[in-house]
Simulated scan of single mutants.
Amino acid sequence: MPGPPAMDPESAAMMKKLVAKGALGAGVLRTDDIQGDYRTLKDRGVEFLQEPRERPYGTEALFRDDSGNWFSFTRRARATSPWSGTGADGPARLPAARYFAAGGSIG
């Protein structure tokens, strides 16, 4: 069940004015199906500045809203190894005991 609004009415009104002016800056939206969602949004008239491209952190497409605010539309990368990379829920981490048991060293 959703909680109360994140902003009081006065702050929400100010935020709406900033968004309408194009002064929001950048935003990030996450998706699990970037190719499918990209096609759906493009078919609905969203103008993308960049098609989905592979990046070290995942696959990203860029678009602007009708007020000029731009957004990163991203599918986060999956870790290919517990030793490096970023997983769907943040940086991959390996407990120290497993790291050292596997032959890891400090220096």
Results as ranks from 00 to 15, higher is better:
Ala101Thr: 00
Asp66Pro: 04
Asp32Val: 13
Arg93Phe: 13
Ala79Thr: 01
Ala20Asp: 09
Glu10Arg: 15
Ala101Val: 00
Phe73Cys: 04
Ala61Cys: 08
Arg75Cys: 03
Thr86Gln: 08
Gln35Glu: 07
Glu47Ser: 13
Ala88Trp: 01
Lys42Leu: 11
Pro91Asn: 13
Arg53Cys: 04
Gln35Ala: 10
Ser67Trp: 06
Trp70Val: 01
Asp65Tyr: 11
Ala26Gln: 11
Ala12Ile: 07
Leu24Met: 12
Val46Tyr: 01
Gly90Arg: 10
Thr59Glu: 07
Ala61Glu: 06
Arg76Asp: 06
Asp89Glu: 04
Thr59Met: 13
Gly36Val: 04
Arg39Leu: 14
Ser84Lys: 07
Tyr57Lys: 09
Pro2His: 08
Thr80Met: 07
Thr80Asp: 10
Leu41Tyr: 13
Gly87Met: 12
Arg78Phe: 10
Tyr99Leu: 02
Gln35Phe: 07
Phe48Asn: 00
Ala96Val: 10
Thr80Gln: 11
Pro2Gly: 03
Leu29Arg: 05
Glu10Asn: 14
Lys16Thr: 00
Ala20Pro: 00
Ile106Thr: 04
Val28Phe: 04
Val46Lys: 04
Thr59Asp: 07
Ser11Trp: 15
Val28Lys: 04
Glu10His: 13
Glu10Phe: 14
Asn69Thr: 01
Ser67Pro: 02
Phe71Glu: 03
Arg30Val: 14
Ser105Leu: 12
Glu47Cys: 06
Ala23Asp: 07
Gly25Thr: 03
Gln50Ala: 14
Glu54Phe: 15
Arg39Asp: 12
Thr40Asp: 15
Asp89Phe: 06
Gly36Tyr: 10
Ala26Cys: 08
Arg78Met: 12
Val28Gly: 03
Gly36Cys: 05
Asp65His: 05
Leu29Tyr: 14
Asp65Gln: 01
Gly3Gln: 01
Ala23Ser: 08
Thr74Gln: 10
Arg78Gly: 10
Lys17Pro: 01
Phe73Asn: 00
Lys21Val: 05
Pro56Met: 07
Thr80Phe: 15
Arg93Pro: 01
Ala101Leu: 04
Met7Gln: 02
Met15Pro: 00
Gly103Asp: 01
Leu62Tyr: 04
Pro82Asn: 09
Arg98Leu: 12
Leu49Glu: 10
Thr59Ala: 10
Lys21Asn: 09
Asp32Ala: 13
Gly104Trp: 06
Gly103Gln: 03
Ala88Ile: 10
Arg39Ile: 12
Gln35Arg: 08
Val19Ser: 05
Gly68Tyr: 14
Arg64Trp: 05
